[in-house]
Structure formats: C-alpha cells, structure tokens
Amino acid sequence: MTARGDALLAAVAVSLMSVCLHAGFQQTGLQECHRCDGRLQDGSAVGNFCIASAGQVDGRCCLRHQGEQDRATIIGLDLSNCSLGNVEDLHEAITAVIIDLSANPIVNMSDSVFQGFTQLHSLRLPLPCQCPGGNESWETVEDIGSVCLCEGQRDACYSGGNMSWNCPENSLCGPYGPGLVQCSCSGDYHGYKCLRKGQFPMAEVLGILGASTIMVSGILWVTQRRKAKTV
C-alpha cells in the first residue's frame, strides 16, 4: 500500500473513532435522553419550549450548553408514551424546566424522584397520578384529558407569605423541589441543628481521623503478626 493510501486509511479510522466516541458520550453522558426510542417532536409541549428557548435537541431532551467547557444540561425532557411503569430516578434532568411523563402506565413513583428539582416549572403526568408535593406545591393543578398538569412550582419554605417549615434556629430554609426544603446553617454556625458557633474545627477533625487510622492500622498489623506466629 502506498503512503497516500496509508494516510487515507488512517484518516478514515480517526473519523470512525470520533463518531463512535461521540455516540458513546451521548449514551453514557446523557442516558435519560435515550431512555426510550424516538426524538423530541415539534408541536409537543417540550418541543415548543425547546424552540422558544433556542435549545438543542438530543433524543428526547432539550439541551442548553453553558460554561467554559460547553457543558450540556437538560432543560426539557419528554418521556411521554415510553411504556414506563415505574419512575425512580431522573437525576440527570435535575436542571429541567419542563418534564412530560404523560401517556405512561405509571403505577409507582418514588417520593424522592423530584428531590432537588428547584427549576422545574411544568410537569405533565398521566392520570391518576398526583402532582408531587401535593396541589399546594403548585400554582396550577389541572386535569386535561388524560394528563395531570402541574405548573408553577411554589417555594416550599413559604405558604401564604409565611414561613411554613421549622428549620433549626441559626439556619436558613431553601427550596429543594416540589414540597421539599433543605435547612442550611447560617453565618458561622455549624454542627448538629446549627448549635455550634465559630470556625469549623477542621484541623481537630482531621487529627482525630488520622489518629484513628493509625490506631486501626496498628491493630491490624499486630493481628497479622500473631496469626503469622501461630502458623
């Protein structure tokens, strides 16, 4: 084979490898977009949102690229009519603004599915499913045909303008998904129920962990020595 032929063969091999790597990235990096066959359709709720948001379609997802590394995040997910019976984990779509799970025979949905979904504004579920967090967690709850529409996620920390969750003293309440909150220590408070004040004793903690590791290693060494002598 000539040098020109070798160069052409190498170029083809590199091109094929690039295609395979790109396909593999889509499958492993954004598996939720390819949970079922098909592609995000124009005219669907998520499709219309994607067009209005100038998003990029990847399988059943609408993506937004951001950051210096052009990282893709899911802002829309359409898993309608995917024959889903159980929904337990949608963590890849935690940045989604709109999710469609309608037209699925869902019989079980974990209570923690939408934990951390603070940006979720519109959710479509098959009846008789109910909106996560209860109707009070949404501005609008409406049954449209066979679809339960949940729109306008409310801040679970407040109800009617008043604090509705009792976070410990010296802590702040933050939304953590429909009907969910998370309490974080404020200022320089830390520890159990944010009762300790001052800088976190990192050096002391590391010292205790280091001493414990050395002690455990010593015990294992002595044990192994005794076993060796016994043998």
Results as ranks from 00 to 15, higher is better:
86 N>F: 13
174 G>I: 09
210 G>P: 01
34 H>Y: 15
155 D>N: 15
63 L>S: 05
175 P>Q: 13
9 L>A: 15
40 L>F: 03
224 Q>Y: 11
142 E>D: 10
80 S>R: 09
91 H>M: 08
103 A>N: 14
111 D>Q: 12
199 Q>R: 14
7 A>V: 14
217 S>F: 10
183 C>V: 05
117 F>W: 04
67 G>W: 03
81 N>D: 14
118 T>H: 08
110 S>K: 12
176 Y>V: 00
113 V>W: 08
209 L>T: 09
104 N>D: 04
13 A>S: 07
103 A>W: 08
163 M>Y: 04
165 W>S: 08
165 W>R: 15
193 K>M: 07
190 H>K: 10
227 K>E: 09
151 E>V: 10
130 Q>N: 05
37 D>R: 11
168 P>N: 11
30 L>P: 00
9 L>E: 13
37 D>W: 04
224 Q>I: 12
24 G>A: 14
81 N>V: 05
1 M>S: 12
213 T>K: 10
1 M>P: 07
153 Q>F: 05
166 N>M: 03
155 D>W: 02
66 Q>H: 05
7 A>E: 13
128 P>M: 07
71 R>P: 00
209 L>E: 12
195 L>V: 14
153 Q>N: 10
95 T>E: 12
61 C>M: 04
178 P>G: 08
213 T>Q: 10
174 G>S: 13
50 C>K: 02
100 D>G: 05
94 I>L: 11
160 G>P: 01
69 Q>L: 02
231 V>R: 15
179 G>H: 02
7 A>M: 13
68 E>L: 13
121 H>R: 13
150 C>T: 03
173 C>S: 06
165 W>H: 15
26 Q>F: 08
138 W>C: 05
225 R>E: 11
160 G>H: 02
97 V>P: 00
86 N>P: 01
203 A>L: 08
26 Q>Y: 07
94 I>M: 12
197 K>F: 15
31 Q>V: 01
46 V>I: 15
147 V>T: 15
159 S>H: 13
193 K>C: 00
141 V>S: 09
114 F>A: 05
11 A>I: 05
203 A>C: 01
149 L>Y: 11
33 C>T: 10
68 E>W: 07
38 G>E: 11
103 A>G: 01
23 A>D: 07
29 G>S: 09
222 V>S: 07
80 S>W: 00
117 F>K: 06
114 F>S: 08
69 Q>R: 10
124 R>I: 09
159 S>M: 06
198 G>R: 00
19 V>C: 03
79 L>N: 07
60 R>Y: 00
229 K>E: 13
217 S>G: 07
95 T>I: 03
229 K>A: 14
226 R>Y: 02
48 N>P: 01
118 T>K: 12
190 H>C: 04
169 E>L: 14
28 T>R: 08
159 S>R: 14
22 H>A: 12
63 L>I: 02
64 R>V: 09
218 G>D: 03
64 R>C: 00
214 I>T: 10
26 Q>N: 14
49 F>D: 04
63 L>R: 03
194 C>S: 10
88 E>Q: 14
122 S>Q: 15
44 S>H: 06
141 V>D: 06
26 Q>R: 09
125 L>K: 02
18 S>Q: 08
69 Q>T: 07
8 L>S: 07
74 I>G: 04
216 V>F: 09
146 S>Y: 11
112 S>D: 10
127 L>V: 15
125 L>F: 03
227 K>V: 11
158 Y>W: 11
85 G>C: 04
25 F>L: 12
194 C>T: 03
206 L>Q: 12
187 G>S: 12
